[in-house]
């Protein structure tokens, strides 16, 4: 594992971040290359949750890097470098979305999703409230997933299923889940980037994760 890769739940250490910033400010292309390798794949996936095509997402990522370079002298380190870069990305993506006429502000999308009713598991799978012994306990418990070589889906197919299900999530859930569970950003970073409260961020994450689990159960344990 490269020393530059951030921990799954944190940013880079302050010392190395400061060094990287100094190198960038002095125009060191290798430092820029390293930063690009570290963050571009994640930036692309997150951009893709805001705009309609991969090509537009790539343009947004390019604009983001230009924004990062142009703003590098003003970056004061009040957030981690990673959070700052992702905030530039979401701002560009939002602007782009407006041009594409497909945006509803992220806050509106999030509010809409949060306002919907949700249960992690079909309520029919629990015993009724008036059950004499086990109210609200499992009637149809989670089915065991078959991941053996004889299983209905191969590992590669399972991963494709997860990918498809993530793509099918409502946009705010998709953005939160992508940042948290694919890119490994921590909850504080995601709240800062998407301007969500900690509670709402958790609700969106919960809904997204629960739906992916349900889909896996439906396919791996039909």
């Amino acid at each position: 594992m490269s020393a530059l890769r951030p921990a799954r739940d944190g940013g880079e250490p302050d010392g190395s971040e400061r060094r990287l910033l100094d190198q960038l400010r002095s125009g060191d292309e290798r430092a820029f290359d390293r930063l690009v390798s570290l963050h571009s794949p994640g930036l692309l996936r997150v951009a893709r949750t805001f705009v309609s095509t991969q090509a537009v997402a790539e343009e947004v990522v390019q604009e983001t890097w230009l924004g990062v370079l142009r703003g590098i002298d003003r970056f004061e380190g009040r957030s981690s470098l990673r959070t700052w870069i992702y905030r530039i990305l979401t701002n560009r993506a939002r602007t782009r979305g407006v041009v594409e006429h497909r945006t509803v502000p992220f806050a509106t999308l999030a509010a809409r999703e949060l306002g919907e009713g949700f249960t992690a598991v079909d309520p029919e799978r629990f015993l009724p409230a008036d059950h004499d012994r086990w109210p609200h306990h499992w009637a149809a418990p989670p089915r065991r997933w078959d991941t053996s070589p004889e299983a209905a889906l191969s590992h590669a197919e399972t991963l494709r299923l997860v990918q498809t299900e993530i793509a099918a999530l409502p946009p705010a859930q998709r953005a939160v889940l992508t940042m948290r569970d694919l890119e490994g950003l921590d909850s504080d970073e995601v709240c800062a980037i998407l301007e969500l409260t900690a509670g709402n961020q958790r609700v969106l994450l919960h809904r997204g994760r629960s739906k992916i689990r349900s889909a896996l159960e439906a396919h791996l344990a039909p």
Partner: peptide, 10 residues
């Protein structure tokens, strides 16, 4: 398991 599979997409 779901979280692990999701992480593998990275």
């Amino acid at each position: 398991d779901t979280l692990e599979l999701t992480g593998e997409l990275r």
